[in-house]
């Protein structure tokens, strides 16, 4: 376990360690669970990784809402496989977080008690089938931009989980884009459904990258320590640049009148994000914050007797094996 390390009173020994640590990660070096690390690095990673894991798990709910109504057997299987992957990804990242000396139990409790954050995007409702397309295309698209960066994070277990996740998530975005493309060349009702979903999911997707750089307290430190390699605004810009031509290709319109290509910077300029909405949802007052947490609590509470039964059975068997061995 890393030593306690308050920034105000660093012992000469810890100051030397910190310097060596920062030089190491500054050169792109990896940090492994048993290596010395500043307590704040450990805390930041626990915060960031558990938030990421919670997002995967809560993220199952909006899409899960459409599994039983998916309009074809193929779409049903794809959606099931995708939502299942999200459970898997939550699981990988929880396990990565556990290498920092915290149990999954504590992390889950923090989520259920409303003390931990998860991505605000999952506090929006999925109203039509096209929302499943929009989520795959935009939400997973944004996640991939972020996660491709995190696959190079300085903390080894996080980076390794991200590499696995990026490989698996490739199909998530494609299936979403395929849904949107199919709808937009479908019946007028289907095309309208696709445009409506895009209108509702576009801005929340941009918010997924977090506050702008001028208002992001953790960014500088995370970049210094090699956890993040790019700022929120850089990632957001990359996502917009990638997505604009994709929308054009399938005949859908992004709901931003200020969208302009800048020949000089070779980037797409976009309008101002509604930061009031962003903070409202972050603070728990989005359309589905309450429902999402309640669904997770219900699953956890209803499952308590199941987890207990399996443990009781294992304990009996262990006792039995010891008794027969003796």
């Amino acid at each position: 376990m890393p030593q306690k390390n308050t920034e105000s009173a660093l012992s000469p020994e810890d100051a030397a360690r910190l310097e060596a640590f920062e030089a190491h990660v500054g050169k792109g070096g990896y940090v492994e669970p048993k290596d010395w690390m500043p307590e704040r690095y450990r805390k930041q990673l626990i915060r960031m990784m558990s938030q990421h894991a919670h997002s995967e798990v809560v993220g199952m709910l909006p899409e899960g809402n459409w599994i039983t109504r998916a309009p074809s057997l193929r779409r049903k299987m794809v959606l099931l496989a995708k939502v299942q992957d999200e459970a898997g990804h939550g699981l990988y990242i929880y396990c990565g977080t556990e290498t920092l000396g915290v149990d999954r139990e504590e992390l889950v409790e923090a989520l259920l008690a409303g003390k931990a954050k998860y991505s605000s995007i999952f506090n929006y409702p999925t109203l039509t089938w096209a929302d499943i397309g929009a989520i795959g295309w935009l939400v997973d698209g944004a996640a991939i931009v972020n996660q491709t960066m995190l696959a190079k994070a300085s903390y080894g277990p996080y980076a390794r989980a991200m590499i696995r996740i990026c490989k698996e998530e490739n199909f998530h975005k494609r299936q979403g884009y395929e849904i949107m493309a199919t709808l937009s060349k479908g019946t007028p009702a289907q095309k309208a459904m696709a445009q409506d979903a895009l209108d509702r999911w576009w801005w929340p997707s941009l918010m997924m990258f977090g506050p702008s750089d001028t208002n992001s307290p953790n960014s500088a430190e995370l970049i210094k320590w090699g956890v993040k390699k790019k700022t929120n605004d850089e990632l957001r810009q990359r996502f917009v640049d990638l997505t604009v031509p994709q929308a054009e290709a399938i005949g859908l319109t992004l709901p931003d009148p200020d969208l302009r290509y800048d020949e000089e910077t070779k980037h797409w300029n976009f309008g101002e994000i509604d930061w009031d909405e962003f903070w409202t949802v972050v603070k728990g007052n989005g359309p589905c914050n309450k429902e999402r947490l309640e669904a997770r609590r219900r699953a956890h509470d209803d499952g308590a007797w199941v987890r207990a039964a399996a443990e009781a059975y294992a304990a009996k068997r262990n006792g039995h094996n010891r008794a027969t061995a003796a």
Binding site: T68, K76, D302
Partner: peptide
């Protein structure tokens, strides 16, 4: 069974 997706007693069993 698909009705359990996202609501199972523990993540491993959800999968």
């Amino acid at each position: 069974l698909s009705e359990w997706c996202g609501h199972a007693p523990i993540l491993e069993e959800d999968i």
